[in-house]
Design a protein around this nucleic acid. Structure first.
Length: 622
RNA sequence: GCUCCCGUAGCUCAAUUGGAUAGAGCGUCAGCCUCCGGAGCUGAAGGUUACAGGUUCGAUCCCUGUCGGGAGUACCA
């Protein structure tokens, strides 16, 4: 993996620059001087990692930011950490943005505090700025995001939520950061599951059912034939129809694979059936994406790459990476004794590794990306390790210049701590899940409306429920550390308190409700923003938090973790609540009133933009 | 067997990737409503970060081992 240094954009004027980036630039200069002066030798390539040790403080009593690199540098310099910290402070030029640093604290922390006047200027600038004071990245990259990727032959289920929601949020965030993003839905439209449908179509289709509900019938065929083909005694015992078919067609498993192979070889009948099924399947998934507010730049499914597969296998064989084994063709990455990465089956059919490799090559040739992100569950980590390693040896990822990243996530679990299933043991369909979330949200919204006596029309409550219900499902997923499994719970995600979508959506409605209630024009407030000044610590704390928006987005990108953004937004809401509970806004006067209105305005904008970047809709009122 | 991931408050989860006193929500307890949206605020209690070592000025994080849970492991994706 290539290291991506985050260069502070020193070409930008200091005032317009976010605080952390500005401070890192200042530390970089100080460290360069430290090295030039012979205090401690620092190689230029070490600077990015050292400068990243400028961070938000854990506790406001230590200031706003702290630098911790002195402790690490002290050892190799053979000096006391405190002395090195003093030497760094001596060379630190903080301009008119930060208070002059004091003495190092503890073993050698260098603590910095933003000047109140600089903070006020930054707030004023941010509230009138479309980007809310967030600077675009200094070096934009082309980033391909590969996510969602359902099998079109069967209904989308709960397993597709995380990939779709996390991928969509990352795409939005990276794009806002200033990168050139390319989202591509790598549909499963060509694999063995289609062999099952083809076999089912030929042996046990229900024409009436297909006419009425095409995807429903195709889904039924898929589930039925999978059982027949697998022929697991326990499954057949529980399904009389599958058992009967399995008895009649003992070779079903082999025949399914043959149907797949025929499709791949261009068999006219199978090809025609596939052409017939595809539009039906696509309409169905597009409808769900519409509801989820998810869109892709491209939808190049497995079938798109099918013409390249034979050549892919041929090339890998020709360059000595792949060879025949037990009738199949595989790439032996870890020697002849370890399982290879199979790229062609003994029956001639290709595998998803083949498609993945062909896809990498195609994307490299056509899009020349700096990075390709695969938002796919963690169970496929070995697969991607092998595919990425093969791609590197194959040389299609360029001279080591493209990051191939598996953005892995954990499993969605049920209350019992096991993979989320219905009571009958089936996988949970995505759309029924959305329906239930929306239905429950409608109940919550209606109850709140009744309690408050606001008498919102039912149509409005339905609209709010759609945003709240789907937002709840998305937010619950995004607010979790993506690497761990998480327990799916409607009760928890629809809570009106705590770190939930409903709470965040409500926070926006409440903040922005002030302007309507007070008859205050937000444009006027923003024009008067230059006059603001802080008189209370809670105003300052909120202002500081609001200006860290860009830092939160940068930290999301660093590890592709949307929960960094949800945590940040929750912090903003908390800082706002503390501020709003203690201080009057509409009843304040003069500069104090303006200052507080500006903070309300910027809070609303940051929360709204943050939720938008997570793919969560915000109702006008709740 | 081998490889990877995980183990944090009663529960569900965080923890700026080696930083300062491990934080939220729910639940529990005590305060705050003639007040701009109380879906709130302030505070308290609750932890040997599975366990045992090691490295470090500093470890939830890195290393070794043990226990427990999950996943993957040659022709599904």
């Amino acid at each position: 993996m290539r290291s991506r240094s985050r260069r502070p954009g020193r070409e930008r004027p200091a005032m317009a620059e976010p605080f952390r980036a500005a401070l890192r630039g200042m530390f970089q200069s100080a460290l360069e001087r430290l090295s030039a002066d012979g205090v401690v030798a620092i190689a230029p390539e070490e600077l990015p990692a050292l400068v990243e040790q400028v961070r938000e403080t854990a506790d406001p009593k230590h200031g706003d930011y702290s630098g911790t690199m002195a402790m690490g540098l002290a050892k190799r310099a053979g000096r006391k950490p405190r002395d090195v910290a003093i030497e760094i402070i001596r060379r630190l030029e903080v301009g008119d943005v930060f208070e002059p640093p004091g003495e190092p604290v503890g073993p050698g922390f260098i603590n910095l505090r933003v000047r109140d006047d600089a903070l006020a200027r930054a707030v004023a600038g941010a509230c009138g700025d479309e980007r809310l004071g967030v600077a675009p990245v200094a070096t934009p990259e082309t980033i391909v995001l590969d996510y969602s990727s359902p099998n079109v032959a069967k209904p989308m289920h709960v397993g597709h939520i995380r990939s779709t929601v996390i991928g969509d949020a990352l795409a939005r965030i990276l794009k806002f950061r200033g990168h050139h993003t390319i989202t591509d839905n790598h549909l499963g439209d060509w694999g063995t599951q289609f062999g099952m449908i083809l076999w089912g179509w030929k042996h046990c289709r229900d024409d009436v059912a297909f006419a009425a509900d095409p995807t429903g019938e195709l889904g039924r065929l898929y589930r039925l034939v999978r059982k027949v083909a697998d022929a697991r005694p326990d499954e057949l015992a529980a399904d009389a129809e599958a058992a009967a078919l399995a008895a009649r067609f003992p070779e079903a498993g082999r025949e399914v694979l043959a149907e797949t192979a025929k499709l791949h070889e261009g068999d006219p009948e199978n090809r025609a059936l596939w052409e017939q099924f595809m539009p039906v399947c696509r309409r169905e998934i597009d409808r769900i994406y519409g509801r989820l507010d998810v869109a892709f730049d491209h939808t190049l499914g497995e079938s798109f790459f099918q013409p390249l597969l034979a050549g892919t296998v041929h090339d890998l064989e020709a360059c000595g990476l792949a060879r025949e084994s037990r009738g199949a063709v595989g790439v032996f990455l870890d020697g002849p004794d370890k399982p290879p990465l199979l790229i062609r089956k003994a029956d001639g059919a290709f595998l998803y590794a083949t498609t993945d490799l062909a896809t990498i090559r195609w994307r490299m040739e056509h899009w020349k990306p700096d990075r390709i992100l695969y938002v796919v569950d963690h169970r496929q980590s070995q697969h991607f390790e092998q595919v990425f390693e093969t791609a590197r040896r194959w040389g299609v990822d360029g001279p080591g210049s493209t990051d191939l990243v598996h953005v892995a996530f954990g499993t969605v679990l049920g209350d019992d701590g096991k993979p989320f299933k219905t009571r009958a043991g089936d996988t949970v369909g995505l759309e029924p899940l959305l329906d239930e979330g929306v239905a429950r949200a409608f109940g919550v919204v209606t109850a709140a409306d009744a309690e408050r006596g606001t008498a919102m029309p039912e149509a409005e409550r339905r609209g709010i429920a759609e945003a709240v219900g789907i937002g709840a499902i998305k937010y619950a997923d995004l607010s979790q550390n993506r690497t761990t499994d998480y327990v799916f719970s409607f009760d928890k995600m629809l809570e009106l308190k705590g770190n939930t979508a409903a709470y965040m959506q409500y926070a926006v409605a409440r903040v922005e409700g002030i302007f309507a209630r007070g008859g205050v024009d937000r444009g006027t407030v923003r024009r008067e923003a230059a006059a603001i000044a802080f008189t209370d610590g809670r105003e300052r704390a909120l202002a500081m938090k609001l200006l860290r928006f860009g830092e939160a987005l940068e930290d999301v990108e660093a590890d592709y973790r949307p929960n960094v953004l949800t945590a940040y937004l929750f912090d903003v809401a908390g800082a706002y609540s503390t501020f709003y509970d203690a201080l009057s806004v509409l009843k304040a006067e003069g500069a104090e009133r303006t200052t507080r209105l500006v903070l309300c305005d910027l809070t609303g904008q940051v929360l709204r933009k943050g939720l938008e970047l997570l793919g969560i809709r915000v109702p006008e009122r709740m």
